[in-house]
């Protein structure tokens, strides 16, 4: 019988060795390891780049009063004396959508601009783009297959974001004032870009799970210790008092002062009071 066969025979016959072999087979497997933690990962749904959730617009185009005149006929003197039907024809009700959007944009810019003739300051530019973006976003909802509009919209959103970035660098106060006025949320780009993968997401989720477990356990331990606090302080007062009395009785050097004992008593009283307040 050759040596190899002898070893094999030993291995198969010896129950201890056989179990070892089994353990080795399972525990040494390091590839394709699946965590048995009950963490459920939900892949976030993709939001198209032109949607308000991505662009940061918190408000859309509001519903305007349809009875007002179109932008070009606002100050018309002829319309003042015109008859009812003509007035209606020149109102927003009979105007194309673009006229409504134009009026919205004009009103929005009027609420922002520095002076009467302000057309090109950074805040007015950003406001104008915001008006266009919101109108186009509405159009995208109605015509989701309009690819040309989608491209233009995305480019405009990116341009606005870029100029918001510049404004933030130049003039922070104006930046904050403007995003508050226009209802835009500004988020900086993340430090690193990587597409979402199952493995990486699960890794992050596992990390947060471990962190939560640790914090829970620490909190529980803290609660246990805090529950023991009053009893411990009472014991401490008793012990200190006992030591002080003994030292006085025996005529030895008194190492425990009365202030120390009073301090602990005060600590206990404060603790009990704060607990009571918390309960109330």
């Amino acid at each position: 019988m050759s040596a190899a066969r002898l070893i094999l025979k030993n291995v198969t016959e010896n129950p201890l060795l056989r179990s070892n072999l089994n353990i080795n087979n399972t525990s040494l497997r390091q590839y394709a390891f699946k965590s048995d933690l009950k963490i459920k990962w939900v892949r976030p749904e993709k939001i198209p780049c032109y949607k308000p959730e991505k662009s940061g617009d918190l408000a859309g185009v509001p519903k305007l009063d349809k009875s007002q005149y179109q932008l070009d006929f606002r100050n018309s003197k002829e319309l003042e004396t015109a008859n009812e039907h003509v007035k209606k024809l020149f109102s927003l009700e009979f105007a194309p959508k673009s006229e409504v959007n134009r009026l919205y944009r004009k009103d929005l810019c009027d609420s922002i601009k520095r002076h009467e003739y302000d057309m090109g300051s950074i805040e007015v530019k950003l406001t104008k783009w915001t008006g266009i973006i919101r109108a186009w976003q509405e159009a995208m909802e109605r015509f989701p297959r309009n690819r040309i509009l989608k491209v233009h919209l995305k480019e405009l959103i990116d341009k606005r974001k870029k100029h918001l970035k510049y404004l933030r660098r130049w003039d922070y106060r104006k930046f904050e004032w403007l995003i508050e006025k226009l209802d835009i949320v500004y988020k900086p780009p993340p430090n690193e870009f990587h597409w979402i993968t199952r493995k990486d997401s699960l890794r992050k989720l596992t990390n947060t799970y471990c962190e939560d477990t640790r914090n829970e356990k620490l909190a529980a331990f803290r609660a246990v210790l805090e529950a023991e606090q009053p009893a411990f302080l009472e014991e401490k007062i008793r012990t200190l008092q006992f030591i002080r009395d003994e030292q006085q009785d025996c005529g030895a050097d008194v190492t425990v002062s009365q202030e120390e004992i009073d301090g602990v008593k005060k600590q206990l009283a404060d603790l009990l009071e704060s607990r009571k307040e918390e309960e109330d």
Partner: peptide, 24 residues
């Protein structure tokens, strides 16, 4: 105009690192 910081955590999220949403 108030000093910087009054929109922090409301509309301005530049005081913290952002990340790409990986879990819903």
């Amino acid at each position: 105009a108030p000093l910087r910081g009054w929109q922090e955590n409301k509309k301005d999220f530049t005081h913290a690192d952002t990340y790409i949403k990986y879990h819903d």
